[in-house]
Design a protein around this nucleic acid. Structure first.
Lengths: 119, 119
DNA sequence: ATGGGACATCGATGTCTGTCAATATTGATG
DNA sequence: CATCAATATTGACAGACATCGATGTCCCAT
């Protein structure tokens, strides 16, 4: 953590953070990273993310995702939007369909942040 | 993930999960793990956790934690309780003071869960 | 152009959550 | 025992959030 936090997205912030066990987070860092964690701190979004992540190319079409849940289409759309706006999923329209792809950097950043002493 | 989910705590569940990119989470897994993520998905709790984690022995006294925030004592107490009940912090009373210690297994489990393809 | 299918947005609603002031509890000390 | 200091609990309240039905938008096929 040397660069200024100004203008950094949450994903960029988390990408340059040391693991929690090494150095306490600043107020600004914490406020940037928390939304990212909040995005995955929901059972539906966790499953959405893991579903997309385990598809070929780490991407999936919304229609397939809808079918995997017992929730209304607007609700799934809402959760996908949350994941997208957090920077965890990329969004791409192909004809009538919309595909979401996992942004691995974001996931890796969070993973490193939480990695412990054993690492 | 071979053992039954019955009787497993969230921390135990997360400890035996493959990374998100390898296998989609089941409904039950997601519902067990989400509370753990929810616990750290708050700027105050993130800072609390990182503060405790970066102390000697990965433990800290509540009195020191209170001083580090511009929040009321009950609020800090509340957040520590959330982290404790999620299984992320151990609690130990020593005389008048209470110490919280990081449960590294929990953090490591989450880290593995989020670890990506690059890992 | 028109109709239909895929997805997003909107508005409403019930629930959850972060915060505080007040109060309770617990343990050390005089 | 009385008191004080450290921490937890309670109750209240405002703001955030998950969900849904209804509706809007975009794109393709006929």
């Amino acid at each position: 953590m040397s660069k200024s936090l100004i203008e950094l997205t949450p994903v960029q912030t988390v990408a340059c953070c040391s693991p929690l066990v090494q150095e306490p987070l600043s107020l600004q860092q914490a406020e940037q990273i928390a939304p990212l964690l909040k995005a995955i701190a929901d059972p539906v979004r966790l499953r959405l993310l893991s579903l997309v992540a385990s598809c070929a190319g780490h991407e999936a079409c919304v229609c397939d995702l809808n079918d995997a849940f017992d929730l209304s289409q607007p609700t799934i759309s809402h959760h996908l939007k949350v994941l997208h706006e957090a920077g965890l999923l990329d969004r791409e329209k192909r004809g009538v369909w919309v595909f979401y792809r996992v942004r691995s950097e974001a996931l890796d950043g969070l993973s490193t942040l939480l990695s412990g002493v054993m690492a």
